[in-house]
Simulated assay, not measured.
Amino acid sequence: MTPVEIRRGSSPVILAFPHVGAYVPEDIWSRLNDEGQKLRDTDWHVDQLYDGLLASATMVRATFHRYVIDANRDPSGQSLYPGQNTTGLVPLTDFDDQPIWRDGEAPGDADIATRLEAFHRPYHAALAAEIERVRAEHGIAVLYDCHSIRSVCPFLFEGKLPDFNIGTNDGLTCAPEIETAVRETCAKADGYTHVVNGRFKGGWTTRHYGRPQQGVHAIQMELAQATHLASESPPFAYEKGDKTHRMRSVLREILEELQTLAFELAGKAG
């Protein structure tokens, strides 16, 4: 299976999906324990949630699971959140701090190097190429990194997570107009909660590519899974009713606003 799928569009907006993939090669699958094989920390159905909301957007999707290697972690292995609980480039535990590998089967340095070459680097090579293509066409690219996580996850954060978690690495990865537009859309969405640069400030993708001075703006959206799943426990089914319809309406407004802003910012820069 190819490590990345691309659907090219004509918009300056690019949607990235580093954690929706569920592919695990057989030799890696057999090394996961029963807990690991649940693939609990998948960003369940996020690509389906966004599908069709901005038809002209480019989509870049990792097909491999984050337990193979995490496409949203620094390839050097450096932590994104020093001093806070998190999972690494190749996780040893899940988001409940439970081991995911069979005894003696946790990946070592050679494993990680192999997975970097086979999965992580091809995904980011494809994403970087799409960013350059879009920027060359429009003079600007807006990378919107799509994520989700369980609403309650004590190992990673206290209490219940807000519905919308907007990450711009404290304003460094995009123009202030972009952060403001997303924040204001979330703030006016009836019945939802939001935070900007709270527990999730943007992963490696957002921090690595977000260079607003060079015309590449990046923003991460971490959604609480309660906003679009029937249940945040197995089988993690997608909610096809009113709950998801409401969420898709807000997300469509966000993406359309980002596209409009991208054209305005490109015009000013030109």
Results as ranks from 00 to 15, higher is better:
T2Y: 00
P3Q: 15
V4K: 01
V4A: 13
E5Y: 06
R7M: 03
R7H: 06
G9Q: 04
S11R: 10
P12S: 09
V13K: 06
L15I: 04
A16Y: 02
E26L: 11
D27T: 00
D27P: 07
D27F: 11
R31H: 07
L32P: 07
N33K: 05
D34F: 00
L49P: 08
Y50C: 03
Y50K: 04
G52C: 14
G52N: 13
G52R: 10
L53E: 14
T58R: 06
T63E: 14
F64A: 13
H65I: 10
G77P: 11
S79V: 09
S79T: 08
T87M: 07
T87F: 09
T87N: 03
D94C: 02
D94V: 12
F95G: 14
F95N: 14
D96G: 11
D97H: 11
I100W: 11
G104M: 08
G104C: 02
A106K: 14
P107R: 03
G108Q: 09
T114L: 08
E117S: 12
F119D: 12
A125C: 01
A125I: 11
A126C: 08
A129C: 06
E130H: 02
E130W: 03
R135S: 03
A136D: 10
C146Q: 09
I149T: 12
C153L: 15
F155L: 10
G159L: 08
G159S: 14
L161P: 15
P162N: 03
D163L: 13
F164I: 11
N165Q: 07
T168M: 05
L172V: 04
C174D: 04
P176I: 00
P176D: 05
E177K: 12
I178D: 13
A181D: 01
T185A: 13
A187F: 00
A187V: 04
Y192F: 13
Y192P: 03
Y192H: 01
Y192W: 05
T193W: 09
H194M: 06
V195E: 15
N197V: 07
R199N: 08
F200G: 10
T205A: 14
T205R: 09
T205G: 14
H208I: 04
H208M: 01
Y209F: 10
V216L: 12
A218T: 05
A218C: 12
Q220P: 00
E222Q: 08
A224H: 13
Q225L: 14
T227V: 15
S231D: 15
E232C: 01
P234V: 09
P234R: 00
F236S: 12
F236K: 08
A237M: 00
Y238K: 06
E239P: 01
E239L: 02
E239G: 03
T244P: 03
T244Q: 13
V250R: 09
R252S: 14
R252M: 02
E253A: 12
I254F: 02
L258G: 03
T260E: 12
E264I: 08
L265A: 01
A266D: 12
G267R: 08
G267L: 11
A269R: 15
